[in-house]
């Protein structure tokens, strides 16, 4: 219960938020441009982590592994788009949910088949282990700080991509009127594949980065996928800005809730009960936040589609 703890947990929250943003930005782009709900996005997260772990183990270089993971996820994403996803654009959401649920089953069991059920080892390189001392005597892991940095860099890069480049112009046009940009001669199916692969690559990057922090295992993408759904529902589906703010909000609220709610209840409850009640409430906190936001703004904070 001190300033040090608060700073540390705030940073943890921001770090979770930036990783959620990497997931949520792809989901929200795919929905905004193609109108598709993609449950299999968590599978790309997993693919990125596994590819990174495998390549890092064989080359010994975390950076090469990271690049390979991101590329593998993007390639798998492009392949999935070409084979399955493009048949779903004009289908009802129910079909999209089921087909991408089927993809999750295929990816999860396929990965278990190839790599086995036990988690794979992936740890950050030695030059990223250790701590830095921040103002106020807070010691914070370098690796987590690096994750925040990567998140910021990617956010800025995405901003430039979408607002300053020709591809970004097409993405924005696709979000506001799909038929029209097709009629104007833009190769829509190529654009869709590129957007889908971009989202998958970002998810793969997030999976690889977080995989080195936690563990690389089958099903690792699913909790993150559901958090990313909460993020884009809060932020407004289709909005990158909403995804960024939603991700930071969810990351910070979730992290702080888990630390401070049990402490809060300990003030007027026996410690063992307070821990239970606090943990249970903390687990529900972001969903309550979502419900409250939706009660006032049913389309999220920054809806791209009104």
């Amino acid at each position: 219960m001190s300033v040090t703890l608060l700073i540390e947990q705030l940073l943890n929250g921001v770090q979770l938020g930036t990783m959620l943003f990497l997931m949520a930005s792809g989901l929200t782009l795919v929905f905004g441009v193609m109108g598709l709900i993609n449950l299999a996005h968590g599978s790309f997260y997993m693919v990125g982590a596994y590819a990174t772990a495998a390549v890092t183990a064989s080359t010994g270089s975390f950076l090469i592994g990271l690049g390979a993971g991101m590329a593998a996820a993007a390639m798998v994403g492009a392949l999935v788009e070409l084979l399955v996803i493009r048949r779903l654009y004009h289908r009802p959401h129910l079909d999209q949910v089921l087909a991408t649920f089927a993809l999750i089953l295929i990816f999860s069991e396929g990965t278990r088949w190839i790599f086995g059920s036990s988690p794979m080892r992936l740890s950050p390189p030695s030059w990223l282990t250790g701590f830095v001392t921040l103002p106020g005597d807070t010691r914070y892991p370098i690796y987590r700080l690096m994750l925040i940095g990567v998140g910021i860099v990617i956010s800025i890069a995405l901003y430039f991509l979408i607002s300053k480049t020709r591809l970004g112009m097409r993405i924005r046009a696709g979000e506001s009127d799909r038929e029209m940009i097709g009629a104007l001669g833009v190769n829509i199916s190529k654009l869709y594949t590129v957007v889908f692969a971009l989202g998958a690559g970002l998810a793969g990057l997030a999976g690889a980065l977080v995989g080195a922090l936690q563990s690389v295992q089958v099903g690792m993408g699913e909790p993150v996928l559901i958090l990313a759904f909460v993020v884009i529902v809060i932020g407004g589906i289709g909005s990158i800005k909403g995804a960024l703010l939603g991700a930071l909000l969810v990351g910070v609220v979730d992290t702080l809730g888990r630390v401070y709610l049990p402490i809060f209840f300990r003030a007027f409850m026996p410690p063992s009960e307070a821990t239970g009640v606090g943990a249970a409430l903390a687990a529900m906190l972001i969903y309550i936040l979502m419900a409250v936001i939706l009660a006032f703004k049913p389309k999220g904070l920054f809806s791209a589609h009104d």
């Binding site: 709900i37 249970a280 687990a283």
Partner: peptide, 24 residues
């Protein structure tokens, strides 16, 4: 109050809320 994809995701999110509650 919502429709389409929002409805799908919100029903999912509420169910997850109860799941995590039971879990912890």
């Amino acid at each position: 109050r919502t429709t389409g994809v929002y409805f799908i995701m919100i029903t999912l999110a509420f169910a997850q809320m109860i799941y995590y509650f039971a879990n912890s």
